[in-house]
Design a protein around this nucleic acid. Structure first.
Lengths: 218, 218
DNA sequence: CCAAAAGTGTTATGCTTACACCCATGC
DNA sequence: GCATGGGTGTAAGCATAACACTTTTGG
């Protein structure tokens, strides 16, 4: 008898914290639960890991099913497994966080007609009554995003292919929830050498048109 | 029928990367496997998560059973769950890393008479034939330790309660595998304000005795 | 007095911060 | 010509990095 049969097996799910920037705010995709437990509550999208499917593949599948997006930034966050976190039984959740850029966020609601909506992360009402321990997962994801944006280029993943430096700066301000100095920001970003200046500008505005840039993946 | 019953359940284990400093080297605790698969190979200590036990509690239990230590630094690392990582079936491993200080490392071998030994992390032979995907887990743990030591105080967890600044510096040099400037190091460490100068010194040495310090947890 | 590690300051360099005005466009 | 956001440089402060000699002990 294999030891695999000697031990009780928990259920394993992946839960996703899917961020995007919209309406000048950091949003997270939540789904209203149709059944018990936590019926009617908002929850992070997620689902069971299938046999023969890697954890990352399960996360990507949920991302596609629930948010209708593929090929976005996706990173494992943390694994939550306290007994009692799901009243139905032992469920271990491997959480991921994803960043959806402005180009693709409209493809959402590809979801199975469920009530899926973007919620402001900073709206205290959002966190108030999330299902399970999803508030904790969300808080951790925000913390990680805030740290990571300071020393990596994940911030670019939230923008469309072509963007202005002001738009990029705004992403930082929204996530960090504090103003950023324009000149220092531009200096730092350009010095990094990870964006290419395009010849185009964002026209049709009632002021000087801004230069467009694109991100070069490494 | 609950959805928990509709989906196949994988086995879930915790695997531990237990570091210590000994013989002027960074060591990891490995256990020689007595049974198949990977019989005779070295592997990270670990075991199945029990029902009603949190992941962290499972890790702490394994730490106690396999290394004979309690109450040491313990942090979740990453969850590995590729199908095929265990030939016996679907096994998802939540990995943790632990830091055992020099005071307590001798309590090891409390293990069930199994062949448990400290191996040099930098010895290429160590990684060569680890069981499962444990090489990958170990590599990731080393990467994390190296990063974390630069901006946190985890380094102190590897030292006895009382230590000299030279000993602390040596921990950094061993982990980073590069020399550290003595004066700058002392300046930085003292400026952090996380260690207390003791009145004692490390005597009985054939040179000027070094002042002892202790770490103040926050 | 010799060997061996402990302990100690100063200067140069680069990075981060603070800060204010002119520019290009649409209306 | 006015309102609106786009775009630009410089100086100060701060943290990091480089570097060599004196001190204290045991033998």
């Amino acid at each position: 008898m294999s030891p695999l049969d000697k031990y009780p097996r928990p259920s394993v799910t992946v839960d996703l914290v899917i961020f995007t920037i919209a309406d000048d705010d950091l949003k997270v995709l939540l789904i209203r639960r149709g059944g018990e437990p936590f019926k009617g509550c908002w929850a992070l999208p997620g689902g069971f890991v299938e046999l023969g499917e890697s954890l990352e593949a399960a996360a990507a599948r949920e991302l596609s099913e629930e948010a209708g997006v593929t090929n976005v930034y996706l990173e494992q966050l943390y694994t939550f497994g306290d007994p009692g976190r799901d009243p139905r039984g032992r469920v271990i959740s491997v959480s991921y966080f994803a960043l959806v850029d402005a180009d693709r966020q409209h493809i959402r609601a590809a979801s199975d007609a469920a009530d899926a909506r973007w919620h402001s992360v900073f709206d205290t009402k959002t966190g108030g009554k999330l299902a399970f321990d999803h508030k904790r997962i969300l808080d951790y994801a925000v913390w990680r995003l805030r740290n990571k944006i300071e020393w990596t280029t994940v911030g670019y993943e939230l923008l469309p292919k072509k963007f202005t430096l002001s738009e990029l700066q705004r992403v930082y301000e929204i996530i960090l929830q504090k103003p950023v100095d324009k000149r220092n920001f531009r200096k730092k970003v350009l010095a990094q050498g990870r964006i290419r200046e395009l010849s185009e500008t964002r026209s049709d505005v009632a002021h000087r048109p801004a230069r467009l840039y694109s991100f070069r993946k490494k």
